[in-house]
């Protein structure tokens, strides 16, 4: 596969949000002094009346979004993932998720690919925090094209949605004909030997890993689990039943994220040997994104060795 264009999912979010704002006058956007980084500034410039900078005050931002939703608006609330999900967690729990309000939390700078800013700004726990909340939908797009569609889909879902976005420019792996379906895993490769279930920027790494494995005669199934909640248990269980081995890959702690979600489903429905590629219960640090992804075990190579290990246990 030749190297495709690279676009950050936050960039795709900003553009998609502005386009959505043109069509749907109920869309309002809130940001906590990070609109240049989260890319909500594109919307802000186009629709200043429907953009509210709430300052460095995420708790009030979540409550304000709840009030806007209760008045029929569709608020998109943006900040970095650490702050959007952690700083205002209990506000999201009690004022958004519990009353099932129509608030879309679109957080950028998720994961260690934030890079040089270091661990304080690298969210490795946001998927866990959001998916534990009743009523919450959790979507982690794998590229810019999926992000565009996920933004539109999020607006159409009645209820709270968490959209996890990244800072780093990543390959656009989907073509124009791709159709994102919320709640459905996207099957990128079908093979009988092993299932690689990935999310976010790890989907690209999973495809690279699949290429290497195929060169060795191992034929993997590759799933893009872009909706982590509700999880596509059918597709996952079917793939596990067919391949008898599963590797998950995520730019998130292996505790509570995609790996946990998949393990929960498979333990009950189709227990097979499994390995979780992700952050091993650790925070990140400063460094270039590529250095960090390598150091913390989030590359195609790491997926390949996890596949070998899990296949040996079949």
């Amino acid at each position: 596969m030749s190297m495709p264009a690279k676009i950050a999912t936050r960039e795709a979010y900003g553009r998609a949000l502005a386009r959505l704002g043109e069509e749907n006058l109920d869309i309002v956007v809130l940001d906590a002094d990070l609109s240049k980084s989260t890319k909500t500034e594109i919307f802000a410039k186009q629709f200043p009346d429907r953009f509210f900078d709430m300052g460095v005050a995420e708790q009030n931002m979540m409550g304000t979004a709840a009030g806007l939703a209760l008045s029929g608006k569709i608020p998109f609330v943006s900040s970095f993932a650490v702050f959007a999900t952690g700083r205002a967690f209990e506000q999201t729990r009690n004022s958004i998720a519990y009353p099932a309000l129509n608030v879309k939390i679109a957080a950028s700078h998720a994961g260690i690919s934030v890079g040089e800013d270091g661990a304080s700004h690298q969210s490795v726990e946001d998927i866990a925090l959001m998916r534990v909340l009743p009523h919450m939908t959790v979507i982690v797009p794998a590229d810019a094209r999926e992000t565009e569609q996920a933004v539109r889909a999020a607006a159409g879902i009645q209820g709270p949605v968490y959209l996890r976005l990244g800072r780093l420019s990543i390959p656009v792996l989907y073509g124009e004909d791709y159709v994102f379906r919320p709640g459905r895993a996207n099957i990128l490769r079908e093979g009988p030997d092993v299932t690689i279930a990935a999310t976010g920027l790890m989907v690209w790494e999973a495809l690279q890993a699949a290429d290497r494995l195929q060169a060795e005669g191992i034929k993997p199934t590759v799933l893009n689990i872009s909706t982590i909640k509700p999880l596509d248990a059918e597709t996952l269980a079917a793939a596990a039943a067919r391949t008898h081995a599963v590797v998950t890959a995520e730019e998130h702690s292996v505790i509570g994220g995609l790996g946990s979600a998949v393990a929960e489903v498979l333990a009950e429905r189709c227990p097979v040997p499994m390995r979780r590629v992700g952050l091993a219960d650790t925070f990140g640090e400063s460094g270039r994104p590529d250095e960090l992804l390598r150091k913390y075990g989030l590359t195609a190579e790491h997926i390949v060795s996890a596949v070998r290990e899990v296949m040996a246990r079949r």
Binding site: F52, Q59, N60, M61, M62, G63, T64, A65, A66, G67, L68, A69, L70, S71, G72, K73, P75, E90, Q91, N94, S95, Y98, P99
Partner: peptide
């Protein structure tokens, strides 16, 4: 009008309702 109980959250929600109005 709003599910409350966890203290400190109502005024923020009021902000959102007032902005929407």
């Amino acid at each position: 009008e709003m599910s409350t109980g966890s203290l400190g959250q109502g005024l923020a929600v009021g902000n959102g309702m007032a902005l929407a109005a």
